[in-house]
Design a protein around this nucleic acid. Structure first.
Lengths: 180, 180
DNA sequence: CTTGAAATACTACTACG
DNA sequence: CGTAGTAGTATTTCAAG
């Protein structure tokens, strides 16, 4: 049985995408300010059909959001700092407490649990070294359960994008999974 | 002399923004799929006036792009890996060569020159541990001038956003710069 | 179930006050 | 910056593959 899409799948990892969907996604993650008619032309579809697909991609969660990428340097957030965090103790509560608090750190754009010598890794946007120092002294050092914070100041942003390669086999992974 | 916008400034760091501009930016970096009329209402402006501001924010570079944020897990890019890179030698050529090559690493979304124990820090999106291992063995280890690569596999993405706080004093920094 | 064509409603955009 | 008008798009409806 090989029905195409009769069962609306709530799990993002299980959604089906064909070649046209992926063409749409590639375009929109590069530039979402394009009009629907222009997008439709690019993917060789009629505007209504194209619009329906975009809506479906939104509903299924493949498109999480459409946002404007701003210029940090012009908006008092020109400094980027990466920090690696080591917790005092590796207990469930310890992790949970830190996670909860970390999300409230102003300027924190990313926070991840990682393997290796750190427990967490965070990306923080701030104005300058002075403002970061204030954040470091008044917030970061007071995050719950922190044993050590290692700071990496970004001197130059070589590459910064939100776009990632979209494979040709999403939704048809079987063809590639053996190709190790 | 206090003309509002007679001199279009080519330098992103020198652009002027008032309270309304910043309200627009805050909205658009959260959700740029909003219509211009709805945006205008949110910031208490007429649609044409709002549109003019948005266009100006684009032209001045405060809005770098408008993009769709996709769901990596559903698109064969569910694995996020952070890597710290130490170069063999700290020479200008060594850095330049690496930077050039790093931008071509498939799945690399961010690459930064940092202070501290690493020279570079990169964020890489890939499918799974197998595909990362392939990337690691076939690409990363062959990047020019690499002495050591330290890998941090992301186990859980606690927070991931492109939005950062927009200060109330962009374009009017004088009021805050002394407030150390 | 998806597409494409036509019709409607709304929006973006322009000119002017 | 706001109002009014025009042009274009988004969106719905419907018929067909």
């Amino acid at each position: 049985m090989k029905k195409t899409s009769s069962a609306p799948n709530p799990h993002p990892a299980g959604v089906q995408t064909d070649r046209v969907d992926r063409a749409i996604l590639r375009q929109l993650q590069r530039d979402a300010s394009i009009s629907n008619v222009a997008l439709a032309e690019k993917v060789n579809l009629s505007p209504p059909a194209c619009l329906r697909r975009v809506e479906r991609l939104r509903e299924t969660g493949l498109i999480r959001a459409t946002v404007a990428l701003l210029n940090p340097k012009a908006l008092d957030a020109g400094m980027l700092v990466l920090i690696g965090v080591i917790l005092d103790r590796s207990t469930p509560d310890s992790f949970a407490d830190f996670e909860k608090a970390a999300q409230k750190v102003p300027g924190c754009t990313e926070c991840h649990v990682v393997t290796g010598e750190f427990d967490f890794f965070m990306l923080i946007r701030t104005r300058d070294s002075e403002s970061f120092n204030r954040l470091h002294a008044e917030k970061l050092l007071y995050l719950p359960g922190v044993r050590q914070i290692r700071t990496f100041v970004v001197l130059r942003e070589i590459l910064s994008t939100t776009a990632f390669p979209i494979g040709d086999s999403a939704g048809a992974r079987t063809q590639d999974i053996t190709r190790a």
